[in-house]
Amino acid sequence: SISSRVKSKRIQLGLNQAELAQKVGTTQQSIEQLENGKTKRPRFLPELASALGVSVDWLLN
C-alpha cells in the first residue's frame, strides 16, 4: 500500500514525518494521515515521490 511504502522509504532515508513534510511542502499531520492509511491519494503525490527519490508509479503499485 502507499502508506507502507511511504513509511518504509521515509525511515530508510532517516527522515521523520516533519522532515519529510517540509521537503514535500505539506504538514506533518498530512504525512501522518497518509502513513496511517487515512489518505489514499494525496494531492502532493508528485512532490512526495520526488522527496523520497521514487516514482509516482512505485508509490501507487
Score class of each variant (00 low, 15 high):
residue 51 A to C: 07
residue 38 K to R: 12
residue 59 L to H: 00
residue 44 F to Q: 04
residue 24 V to R: 00
residue 47 E to M: 11
residue 6 V to N: 01
residue 13 L to P: 00
residue 56 V to D: 04
residue 23 K to T: 07
residue 60 L to P: 00
residue 30 S to Y: 15
residue 54 V to G: 03
residue 7 K to S: 08
residue 23 K to W: 08
residue 56 V to Y: 07
residue 40 K to W: 13
residue 44 F to E: 04
residue 34 L to G: 02
residue 59 L to T: 01
residue 52 L to V: 01
residue 41 R to Q: 11
residue 44 F to G: 04
residue 47 E to T: 09
residue 54 V to H: 01
residue 1 S to T: 14
residue 47 E to P: 04
residue 53 G to E: 09
residue 21 A to W: 02
residue 36 N to K: 11
residue 51 A to E: 05
residue 15 L to C: 05
residue 7 K to W: 07
residue 56 V to R: 05
residue 46 P to I: 13
residue 7 K to R: 12
residue 38 K to I: 15
residue 57 D to F: 11
residue 23 K to D: 02
residue 3 S to A: 15
residue 29 Q to R: 13
residue 55 S to R: 07
residue 19 E to T: 08
residue 6 V to Q: 01
residue 8 S to M: 15
residue 14 G to P: 00
residue 24 V to G: 02
residue 27 T to R: 06
residue 21 A to L: 00
residue 38 K to A: 13
residue 30 S to F: 14
residue 18 A to T: 11
residue 45 L to P: 02
residue 8 S to K: 15
residue 29 Q to L: 12
residue 26 T to Q: 09
residue 56 V to T: 09
residue 14 G to I: 02
residue 57 D to H: 11
residue 32 E to C: 09
residue 26 T to M: 07
residue 16 N to A: 09
residue 3 S to K: 06
residue 17 Q to W: 12
residue 9 K to F: 05
residue 54 V to L: 05
residue 44 F to M: 06
residue 49 A to L: 03
residue 36 N to I: 09
residue 25 G to V: 03
residue 10 R to Y: 02
residue 11 I to Q: 10
residue 15 L to P: 00
residue 9 K to R: 15
residue 4 S to Q: 15
residue 23 K to C: 08
residue 19 E to P: 01
residue 38 K to S: 13
residue 34 L to H: 01
residue 59 L to P: 06
residue 59 L to I: 13
residue 54 V to Q: 03
residue 60 L to T: 11
residue 49 A to H: 00
residue 40 K to N: 12
residue 16 N to S: 15
residue 42 P to W: 13
residue 33 Q to R: 14
residue 38 K to Q: 14
residue 21 A to D: 00
residue 18 A to V: 10
residue 38 K to C: 11
residue 1 S to R: 09
residue 33 Q to G: 08
residue 30 S to N: 13
residue 37 G to N: 07
residue 50 S to Y: 13
residue 48 L to K: 00
residue 39 T to S: 10
residue 45 L to C: 03
residue 58 W to L: 03
residue 42 P to C: 13
residue 24 V to A: 10
residue 42 P to Y: 10
residue 12 Q to K: 08
residue 32 E to L: 09
residue 33 Q to V: 07
residue 8 S to E: 14
residue 15 L to M: 15
residue 29 Q to H: 13
residue 12 Q to F: 09
residue 7 K to I: 10
residue 20 L to P: 00
residue 60 L to K: 08
residue 24 V to H: 03
residue 37 G to A: 07
residue 23 K to H: 07
residue 28 Q to I: 15
residue 6 V to R: 04
residue 9 K to M: 14
residue 8 S to V: 10
residue 46 P to D: 12
residue 39 T to F: 12
residue 44 F to V: 03
residue 7 K to M: 09
residue 43 R to N: 15
residue 44 F to C: 06
residue 50 S to M: 14
residue 52 L to I: 02
residue 18 A to L: 13
residue 60 L to W: 08
residue 29 Q to G: 10
residue 57 D to W: 15
residue 3 S to T: 06
residue 52 L to A: 00
residue 8 S to I: 12
residue 5 R to H: 04
residue 58 W to C: 04
residue 38 K to F: 14
residue 49 A to Q: 01
residue 53 G to M: 08
residue 15 L to F: 10
residue 35 E to Y: 00
residue 38 K to L: 15
residue 49 A to K: 00
residue 48 L to A: 01
residue 21 A to I: 01
residue 44 F to H: 06
residue 28 Q to F: 09
residue 52 L to Q: 00
residue 51 A to W: 04
residue 36 N to W: 07
residue 30 S to R: 12
residue 43 R to Y: 14
residue 61 N to K: 09
residue 40 K to A: 13
residue 5 R to L: 06
residue 59 L to K: 00
residue 18 A to W: 14
residue 40 K to H: 15
residue 42 P to R: 03
residue 18 A to S: 11
residue 1 S to Y: 09
residue 36 N to V: 09
residue 5 R to G: 03
residue 6 V to S: 05
residue 56 V to F: 07
residue 53 G to K: 08
residue 37 G to M: 05
residue 4 S to V: 13
residue 33 Q to P: 00
residue 36 N to D: 10
residue 22 Q to H: 14
residue 60 L to Q: 09
residue 48 L to Q: 00
residue 9 K to A: 10
residue 20 L to I: 04
residue 37 G to P: 02
residue 40 K to R: 13
residue 36 N to Q: 12
residue 24 V to E: 01
residue 21 A to M: 02
residue 14 G to C: 07
residue 43 R to I: 13
residue 55 S to T: 15
residue 56 V to K: 07
residue 2 I to E: 03
residue 61 N to C: 11
residue 61 N to Q: 12
residue 53 G to F: 06
residue 56 V to P: 08
residue 53 G to Q: 09
residue 57 D to G: 11
residue 47 E to G: 09
residue 5 R to F: 07
residue 32 E to I: 13
residue 52 L to P: 00
residue 54 V to N: 01
residue 56 V to H: 05
residue 54 V to I: 06
residue 17 Q to L: 11
residue 46 P to E: 12
residue 47 E to F: 07
residue 37 G to Q: 05
residue 2 I to H: 04
residue 49 A to W: 01
residue 5 R to A: 09
residue 1 S to E: 10
residue 55 S to A: 08
residue 9 K to G: 04
residue 7 K to N: 06
residue 39 T to D: 13
residue 60 L to F: 08
residue 12 Q to D: 09
residue 7 K to Y: 10
residue 36 N to M: 12
residue 32 E to W: 11
residue 13 L to A: 07
residue 33 Q to Y: 12
residue 1 S to D: 14
residue 53 G to I: 04
residue 20 L to C: 03
residue 1 S to M: 10
residue 26 T to K: 06
residue 10 R to M: 04
residue 17 Q to M: 11
residue 51 A to Y: 06
residue 41 R to W: 15
residue 22 Q to A: 15
residue 33 Q to D: 15
residue 29 Q to E: 14
residue 21 A to R: 02
